[in-house]
């Protein structure tokens, strides 16, 4: 869900960069040095996992996993996602320098929202509640991201409205798959290594 270089207007780019800089600064301040290897290695897992292509019907999609990132990393999600996007920009030229701020915000802010909405849910005793909350986190994160991407397009230029609608609609199946994915993944972690998700 990257927005390419040169598409967005200057005010949107500047707002995105400012918001991301603030949030990353805050996230870094809250992250101690002994957490750095953990956060970094988790970001590399998310980077590698985003290369997995998952079939939906005749097409395929790649995982975004910002819901899962949010649940596992909390406030450190902002720096982690920023680092992932910088690497993608340098290695594959997906996104770029000027869109780094807004792209990070569009992915990481939903992750943070999901962390605060669902972090208690996934520590519940009842496995059904855990599944529902994990599904909700995966679904909501992608949903909010697509809404943010659509909003950044519309704020840049009003006639982007059709592309913006298409972005949200095209991500509907992805939301459901991300939900199922996050629910199974959290269920697996809960069974195999419950201390990772706490509780």
């Amino acid at each position: 869900m990257h927005i390419s270089e040169g598409v967005l207007s200057a005010p949107v780019l500047i707002t995105g960069a400012a918001l991301t800089a603030t949030a990353v600064g805050f996230g870094l301040k809250k992250m101690d040095y002994d957490r750095i290897p953990q956060v970094a290695i988790l970001s590399s897992v998310f980077f590698v996992a985003s290369l997995i292509h998952i079939p939906i019907g005749p097409a395929s999609t790649h995982l975004i996993m910002n819901g899962l990132t949010g649940l596992l990393l909390g406030l450190s999600a902002f720096p982690a996602i920023l680092v992932g996007l910088i690497l993608q920009a340098i290695l594959f030229q997906f996104g770029g320098i000027t869109t780094l701020g807004i792209n990070t915000f569009n992915m990481a802010f939903p992750a943070l929202i999901c962390f605060y909405l669902f972090r208690n849910g996934i520590r519940h005793k009842n496995p059904v509640v855990i599944s529902v909350c994990a599904f909700g986190s995966g679904f909501t994160a992608v949903f909010l991201s697509s809404i943010f991407v659509a909003a950044s397009l519309i704020f840049s230029e009003e006639s982007f409205i059709n592309i913006a609608k298409l972005v949200v609609i095209a991500h509907l199946p992805v939301m459901i798959i991300e939900g199922i994915f996050t629910a199974s993944c959290i269920g697996f972690l809960k069974k195999v290594r419950p201390e990772i998700i706490g509780g």
């Binding site: 290897p37 953990q38 970094a40 290695i41 988790l42 590399s44 897992v45 590698v48 996992a49 997995i52 998952i54 079939p55 939906i56 019907g57 995982l63 996993m65 899962l68 596992l72 798959i177 199922i180 994915f181 996050t182 629910a183 199974s184 993944c185 697996f188 972690l189 195999v192 290594r193 990772i196």
Partner: peptide, 27 residues
């Protein structure tokens, strides 16, 4: 890989396994 629950679950477990191993590795 096909479009079914089994595929999605398998991939989720794959990523879960990667996460667990990398937690240990980071320690």
């Amino acid at each position: 890989p096909k479009t079914n629950m089994h595929t999605y679950k398998t991939y989720a477990y794959l990523v879960g396994m990667l996460l667990i191993r990398s937690y240990d590795r980071s320690d």
